[in-house]
Simulated assay, not measured.
Amino acid sequence: MLDLNEIAMFVQVVRYGSFAEAARHLGVPANTLSRRIQQLEARLDTRLMQRSTRKLTLTGAGQAFHARCAGAVDGLLDASHELQGGSQVPSGLVRVAATADFFEFFPMDWVAEFLARYPQVKLDFVLSDAKADLIAEQIDVAFRAGPLQDSAFVGRQLLGPRSDGLVASPAYLATHGVPLTLQALVQHDCISAPHPGGHATWRLSSPAGVMEEVQVSGRFSANTAQALRKAALAGLGIVLLPPTMARLDVQAGLLVPVLPGYQRKSQGMNVIYPSRRQLPLAVSTFIDTFKDKLHGQDGWPKPVPDLE
């Protein structure tokens, strides 16, 4: 079997015109180069070059072999240089798996800013509520809520367990009033995930840090957070939402915090990726950028005064 290193050495000797010059550029002794070329000729069972004290001359076989190999060797060298240079500049494709409604509450402006800052990076988002198979789908990064369960992969926490809060639309509160105690929620329409008995139990931490619970019900339920948020915006009731999802609506006055002293600890968010070894710079930069963006985004804005 041919030794690819010997082929690369042969191409470099031809390029620089002598063993001495090629040896200087490659950082190996000239006699080592000469011996490796002789080994290549022995493997091929043909003479590739004529040696003299003045110069090297390619044989016909050497000319044909060089013509076939030079481009391939140069291509491999260029690829190597790009990877080595890319170690300082993020580049390449990053495939990201996330939920179908990811961009409903993660601003697209973050992506635009990232791509503007790193023009050699391409992002391919695979959005689905199904759990992505990182290996089969060639996923570089996946956003996952809750505790890490894929022990075969590497995970990093983006957001710790967050404090979900109660919100409702100003129109709903104007019609039904503002609850002043947790138990008052029993008299309100509350939006939650479907429950077989028609009632959901909300366990929240009180302003004093004591866990309290209340059974709530309503006329609308849904199994996605975005559907719950949109129902609250439509005035269908009071809902528990994470701050990352409700913040912009609260800031715009579309939703109002209710009983802001009560919070529910909810699952955090992590990113997972197949391996820590040789993680491409574009992938690690993407992860770090989104973590920085999310830093400080975990809290609720100051409560809005109760409606009259």
Rank of each mutant, 00 (worst) to 15 (best):
A30P: 05
E213V: 02
P257I: 04
A116P: 03
S163T: 05
P243L: 00
G296S: 08
T201I: 09
S221N: 13
Q278V: 09
P29I: 01
D109M: 07
E308H: 12
R247S: 06
G261L: 01
P207M: 00
S87P: 07
S128D: 14
E212H: 08
R54I: 00
L48E: 05
E113G: 12
P196Y: 15
P242D: 13
N223A: 15
S128A: 14
Q297E: 14
G253K: 01
P107S: 06
L58E: 03
F125P: 09
A142Q: 10
P257Y: 01
A246H: 02
T175P: 08
Q215F: 03
Y118E: 09
G17V: 02
A20N: 04
T289D: 14
K55E: 06
M269V: 04
S91E: 11
I37H: 09
M1E: 11
Y16M: 03
A225R: 15
D189E: 15
L307Q: 07
V167N: 04
A79V: 07
A112P: 00
G177H: 14
S163Q: 13
R156M: 09
A8H: 14
D292E: 15
A208D: 06
F286N: 06
R36G: 05
L58R: 05
Q149T: 04
Y262T: 02
V11R: 04
L241N: 04
R68D: 12
L254S: 09
A20G: 07
S80L: 15
L33M: 04
H295W: 05
V73Y: 05
A246D: 01
K230N: 15
G86M: 10
P305K: 06
P280A: 12
Y262G: 01
A67N: 10
K230G: 11
A70S: 11
R95N: 09
E213F: 01
V210E: 15
I191M: 10
G177V: 10
R68I: 08
E212G: 08
A193H: 15
P194A: 06
G60Q: 10
E212R: 14
V283W: 11
S192Q: 09
A22P: 02
R219Y: 09
K122N: 09
L76C: 07
T289G: 05
R276I: 12
S221E: 12
L134M: 09
A20Q: 05
D74T: 13
P242I: 00
R15I: 04
R36N: 06
A142L: 03
